[in-house]
Amino acid sequence: MRLKLQIWRQENGEAGGQFVTYELADASPEMSFLEMLDVLNEQLTERGEEPVAFEHDCREGICGSCGMMINGQAHGPMAGTATCQLHMRHFQDGDEIRIEPWRSAAFPVLKDLVVDRAPLDRIIESGGYISVNTGSARDANEILVPKPAADRAMDAAECIGCGACVAQCPNGAGQLFTSAKISHLGLLPQGQPERDRRVKRMVETMEDYFGSCSNYRECEAVCPKGISIDFIARMNRDYVKALIRGE
């Protein structure tokens, strides 16, 4: 496959950036998208040009490291697929592909396609856990969790923290990410004691960094794990209840 790639190049956080066009003559349909970029980088290095920096690690769609806007869409054209799991068979010979970093005020660019997603960690640190010190737990089977609740909690817990939801949102909102963790823990019996405090602190931290949600629903559409926006509604209800209960 022959491809024309327009890739955002930016030296560092302070420098301005621009699109640079590259021709890639020898992509193949079996390659993953990142392998296609590997091939480009090998060629660039051999030509003495600096390779394109992009984040990646597991390349199995689970660590949440990878992520880029591909033709304007976070993680590219395939639903439910992280960039590293996207394969070139979904593109055509001769295609032009525009590749940019996550675009969001909360995620400043560090270099080329690499951004800083630290605010996501700040949200979890502000309450995305159950307070239980090591060694203080009782026997696991003493806590009964109805299967539907466990399954629903797992649906939320599958979030990989890639930030696509924020990147695609016209407001740069962090609702889908935040609500997934709040719902995962809030759906389980273990998560009840801290439920009010958790939602309150996490929502407030989220608002410190991210834009507000106006129900565009684009987050759900691009989420590689198909996290449902129903969790956002659940988070909003929990938040109001916590305020009423005066936490």
């Binding site: 203080s136 009782r138 998560g191």
Partner: peptide
Amino acid sequence: DQCVAQGVPFAR
């Protein structure tokens, strides 16, 4: 025990 107490959603 520890992981369940933390809220790890193991299969049920």
